[in-house]
């Protein structure tokens, strides 16, 4: 069975239902709107470029086992496996990857979200707080006193 998806800029994609269902959001919507499948499903936050990439990912991973994604998920114990295809897939610029994380998050494609976050973690872990802020244009909203306090508390955690 086929499902049609519409990106925020109006482009329509037709994919197999089982591929689209890697997105938890679409899966839930298909359950609710079983009768009405003539119209494409609109994805208001996902542009055509990103959606094409998300679909490419889902096509490749259509037969994967679902990840048990409970609240206490801790990849430090059980990292998500990456194959050669995934490694190729992540060779994109940072901006594209962050767009993909956003898309995966809004569509709730869990394995892609994990893949993107693993990529982001690899970037972040080599950086100082200032570098992270500069790269992602995040505002430093701490006062110097707050910053000192956090620095000082750090020693207690022995990390």
């Amino acid at each position: 069975m086929k499902v049609t998806l519409e990106s925020s800029d109006g482009q329509v994609f037709t994919v197999d239902k089982e591929v689209a269902e890697l997105s938890v959001i679409i899966k839930e919507m298909l359950v609710i709107e079983q009768a009405n499948q003539d119209h494409p499903i609109p994805l208001l936050n996902v542009g055509a470029v990103e959606l094409a990439k998300v679909i490419e990912y889902c096509e490749h991973h259509r037969n994967d086992p679902t990840i048990d994604d409970d609240e206490d998920y801790d990849s430090r114990k059980k990292p998500i496996e990456m194959d050669d295809w995934d490694k190729q897939f992540t060779i994109v610029n940072k901006e594209m990857m962050f767009e993909l994380i956003l898309a995966a998050n809004s569509m709730q494609v869990k394995p892609l979200l994990h893949l993107g976050c693993r990529y982001a973690a690899d970037i972040v872990k080599r950086m100082s707080p200032t570098e992270i802020r500069d790269l992602f244009q995040i505002d430093d909203d701490f006062t110097p006193e707050e910053q000192d306090k956090i620095e000082w508390e750090k020693q207690w955690t022995k990390l």
Partner: peptide, 23 residues
């Protein structure tokens, strides 16, 4: 929610410095 996923991929020793990025 995205940050939570990212931090799951960071070794524990990197977390204290992430605490200094923003609120």
């Amino acid at each position: 929610e995205v940050l939570l996923y990212i931090s799951a991929y960071l070794p524990l020793r990197h977390l204290p410095s992430c605490a200094l990025v923003s609120k």
